[in-house]
Design a protein around this nucleic acid. Structure first.
Lengths: 163, 163
DNA sequence: CAGCATAGGTTTCTAGTTGCAACCGGAAAC
DNA sequence: GTTTCCGGTTGCAACTAGAAACCTATGCTG
């Protein structure tokens, strides 16, 4: 009733890629480690002291993120004790997700604009709220969205069509 | 080095709202329950059979989502055995996050366009990929973003300014 | 080179979480 | 009034998170 947002889902698990995404990022510390990565942290001890995470868990999470191709693990040439963890393109592609989640937290949980802000380099103005948009750039809201099966989808320039 | 994305973070926990967001949504099944809610499921048994989640965990997660104001729990008038769980505005506001995460999963994990697609009601075309945008609507990429402290932020129309 | 510090883990042990299965209590259906 | 349905709770086994100590390889200092 009311919202047009109803997916004809039967079995959820094998169709939706949300479970797949959560398998990579769904564990307790994953998003915070990712955030720290976005913020220029690259080393085990940096993550550990900044996040206050237990060392064994950190080792496990870093390994998992590396396995999933979200971080790349490379020994540092100059100091062979050190390991560098860096975001891959795949890891960097999580930025919109992370920003969306953080903005939601700002708006609905903490209420504050959150001290360090992401700004556009060009004009140093804060980024816009992350939104769901149509293929031609209109912001879409509750009433503007429906779930559709592939055969009901009009071919569009927003996504490569599935042939 | 190279990417301009470096936040001057010292203590992360008390400033960033990501931890707060994760407290509400960071647990194993939370996002999948949310997704099911977006898809029009409203009842305990529906969630249970659709997700295959253990009953005690489901009860716990639903309770937690209700506590956080993401779902509203209301007994059904007609059949007083039944309880309805519905998304609140706060819960609905997680749509961009969920879509972003799902799109990431499609692009980088499953590789498939994921069977039921979110489309614009107006033209039945699929929604655009969720992106980080500037206040005036340009898509921002790796090199276009920096973290800034409030005093370094130019006042802008994209977000209500923090005064 | 000896001796200490540092980086990145691993091990151990404890406490909490997850998951299955069985049970329960009130409300409807028959 | 017995049976079924809905939304849980309870008990118990397996797994996972967390704190702290320990370990190994490297680098640094004298």
């Amino acid at each position: 009733m009311g919202n047009g947002l109803r997916e004809p889902l039967r079995e959820l698990a094998n169709k939706c890629s949300l479970p797949a995404a959560l398998e990579a990022m769904g564990e307790r510390w994953s998003f915070l480690i990712l955030r720290a990565s976005f913020n220029g942290l690259h080393h085990f001890e940096e993550f550990q002291s900044e996040l206050g995470i237990a060392r064994n868990i950190l080792a496990n999470r870093l390994g998992r993120l590396v396995d999933h191709g979200i971080l790349a693990r490379t020994p540092v040439a100059d100091d062979r004790r050190k390991i560098e963890y860096r975001l891959t393109d795949k890891g960097f592609a999580l930025l919109p997700t992370m920003v969306a989640l953080r903005q939601w937290g700002e708006r609905w949980e903490t209420g504050t604009p959150a001290t360090p802000v992401l700004v556009d380099t060009r004009d140093r103005k804060p980024i816009a709220p992350v939104q769901v948009m149509s293929h031609d750039g209109r912001a879409l809201d509750k009433g503007d969205l429906v779930w559709a099966l592939p055969e009901d989808v009009a071919e569009a320039g927003g996504l490569r069509a599935a042939e």
